[in-house]
């Protein structure tokens, strides 16, 4: 428990900065809904002129596109992107900073098993992500209610918002795995930024090409906002891949770290 609390405390400032930034971005993007809504009526009229086949190909439902979840599906990606960077940073730092801060010797010569060390650290990361996601949910919900004059489908909105947390879990697990495999990560941010943006770009390119096989390559598309907005459901095949990535990454991380030489620095 002492490691857990220690870790919890040491990421506090970091989390506060992220939560504030993501919160500000959320308010900024959602406040644009009013402008969007004005042009959306026109969009709906336009869309009705198109054959259903094409609309379906783009995953667009005319009735949904002018709603708040419809708009939200366009902007959520940017917010999830921020959350993913935060999560990957945490995932890498949890064990990675022991290697760079030369503190591995300190921690691992204490009467704790390596398994206990990892568990405590992962739980601390999980706590931070859960808190961040909860704050994000609050801010997003409050902004959504204040910009939508009429009501909106909160169930769908909630499902979409929760995808923030799921994607965070995936990237935290990936970060953890990276930190265990790569001997010494000197700067965390360049690694997490390039990985997260890499996957993000892959997902966006997949979307521009309208190719959902590419979606398997990008965790950002495991919980595709456009799909959730339209069908109020997750896509089980992608969600399963996401869950598998988390489980495998964490299990592999435990296994590798337990048997790894900790070198003097």
């Amino acid at each position: 428990m002492n490691i857990y609390f220690h870790e919890l405390r040491s990421y506090r400032k970091n989390t506060i900065i992220w939560v504030l930034s993501v919160g500000a971005a959320t308010v900024m993007f959602l406040s644009m809904f009013t402008i969007y809504y004005e042009s959306a009526g026109e969009l709906v009229r336009l869309f009705q002129a198109f054959p259903d086949a094409i609309l379906k190909a783009f995953g667009m439902d005319v009735a949904k596109i002018a709603t708040l979840p419809g708009f939200y599906s366009f902007i959520l990606g940017f917010l999830v992107l921020c959350g993913a960077i935060q999560a990957m940073n945490l995932g890498i730092s949890a064990l990675g900073r022991e290697a760079t801060g030369k503190t591995a010797d300190f921690l691992l010569t204490k009467p704790v098993t390596r398994t206990q060390v990892i568990t405590a650290k992962l739980l601390a990361v999980l706590t931070h992500l859960a808190v961040s996601s909860a704050v994000f949910l609050l801010v997003a919900s409050a902004s959504a209610f204040s910009v939508s004059a009429g009501g909106f489908d909160y169930g769908t909105f909630l499902m979409m918002t929760l995808s923030f947390f799921y994607v965070q879990l995936i990237f935290a697990a990936l970060g953890f795995l990276v930190s265990v495999i790569v001997p010494k990560i000197k700067s965390v941010l360049p690694v997490s930024l390039s990985t997260v943006f890499g996957f993000y770009i892959v997902g966006m390119v997949g979307a521009a090409l309208n190719d959902d096989r590419i979606y398997y390559l990008s965790p950002f598309k495991y919980f595709d906002p456009a799909y959730i907005a339209q069908y109020s459901a997750y896509q089980p095949q992608y969600a399963a891949v996401g869950a598998a990535v988390v489980i495998l990454a964490v299990a592999a991380g435990y296994l590798i770290y337990k048997n790894k030489d900790i070198h003097a620095v």
């Binding site: 040491s10 801060g101 030369k102 503190t103 010569t109 003097a264 620095v265």
Partner: peptide
């Protein structure tokens, strides 16, 4: 254990 190099958080 007292290592040769000092660690710190």
């Amino acid at each position: 254990y007292l290592p040769s190099e000092v660690f710190y958080y």
